[in-house]
Design a protein around this nucleic acid. Structure first.
Lengths: 118, 118
DNA sequence: ATTAGTGTATTATGCCTCTAATACACTAAT
DNA sequence: ATTAGTGTATTAGAGGCATAATACACTAAT
């Protein structure tokens, strides 16, 4: 995985796992790799991976059972909120950035269409 | 200014100034506030502001004259590249994120349209 | 009971960002 | 020449992130 050096790795890992949940790569109730396995997979230290997992649990995205493993939550309200959060939030941020750079809504759409073709 | 705690402040300040240049709030050749003035305006330490300015100069966005001040470059090729960089880059990142979250192009457009209305 | 595989906790170290305080260097106006 | 306003440099310290190494705690299978 390619990490953006300006954003804490544990946050980027959390984001990656959240996207897997939204895209269906990880389904509700599914067991994740072990923290050690994930640490290797993401190429980070065990502590960093642990940080990402404990934060994900704090947010309710995964549930952890000591000695067994971590599982994607089955709480649909959380998963739905996650979807809204991820999409709405990123759309909002994107639009704010484009507008503060002086682009009109029409220009933003054009830029998006152009981006589709690449 | 409201800073995102997960991104270095000096980068966010650079971004803010770049947007001012793109949106026309700062025009080519225009003089910026002094580093000290900007530090107060952004509510950061002088060194942090200096860091942002020296990076902006390294990128060619501004030009600095010791004892006088900093000025937005008049090099149109740099300004044009800045526009392309800012827009294309952010569009690309946005699309990557939306797609990795499982959204189709159509769904992305719908989300954007929805964002316009808010 | 032992073992292998889990999650969890602790301590130490290094790096980067940010702040703080101070000093130096240059320019323009007086 | 002096002064006020610039950009620039240096040193010190606090805090967060990441790594490294180690140990502990729990679970399931043998």
């Amino acid at each position: 995985m390619n990490f953006n050096p300006t954003i804490p790795i544990y946050l980027q890992i959390m984001d990656s796992i959240k996207k897997d949940v939204l895209s269906g790569a990880l389904t509700a109730g599914e067991r994740l790799d072990s923290v050690r396995g994930l640490a290797v997979k993401f190429g980070v230290n065990l502590n960093t991976m642990q940080r990402a997992c404990s934060e994900l649990e704090r947010e309710g995205v995964i549930q952890t059972q000591r000695g067994i493993g971590s599982f994607v939550t089955q709480d649909k309200s959380i998963l739905k909120a996650l979807e809204r959060e991820m999409v709405d939030q990123k759309v909002k941020e994107f639009l704010e950035e484009m507008r503060s750079a002086g682009l009109t809504d029409k220009e933003i759409l054009t830029a998006i269409e152009k981006g589709f073709k690449k």
